[in-house]
Simulated assay, not measured.
Amino acid sequence: MDEDRVEGAAKKIKGSVKETVGKATGDAKTEAEGNAEKNEGRMQNAVGGMKDSIREAVGKK
């Protein structure tokens, strides 16, 4: 498993928590930051998945 997938999943979780805290406290800035971090994590996870697919296609694991 690519390192980007692990880091991306962690960012996604952290962003979701931050977004939820922002919603609960009514802090729009924290909510927006959490949403952005969640999306960044989602993208990083996708990049890691592509890297894994390429490694499997080439035969390197």
Rank of each mutant, 00 (worst) to 15 (best):
K23P: 04
V58D: 10
K38N: 05
M1H: 05
T25S: 05
N35W: 11
G59Y: 03
D4P: 02
N45Y: 07
G41S: 08
A46R: 01
I13N: 13
E56L: 11
E37W: 02
A28C: 09
A10D: 11
G8F: 01
V58Q: 00
N35I: 14
E19W: 01
N45Q: 10
E31A: 07
S53I: 01
V47A: 07
K29N: 06
N35P: 03
G48D: 11
S53L: 12
K60F: 15
V17A: 11
A10T: 06
I54S: 08
Q44W: 03
R55E: 10
A9H: 00
I54Y: 01
A36P: 02
A24T: 03
E40L: 08
R5D: 13
T25L: 13
S16F: 09
K60Q: 15
M43P: 07
T30A: 12
D4L: 08
G26Q: 12
M1P: 06
E33R: 05
Q44D: 00
G48I: 11
A28S: 08
M50H: 06
S53W: 07
R42N: 00
G49E: 10
V47P: 07
K29R: 10
G48C: 04
I54T: 00
V21D: 02
A10Y: 09
K51L: 12
E19M: 08
R42E: 13
E33M: 12
K11D: 06
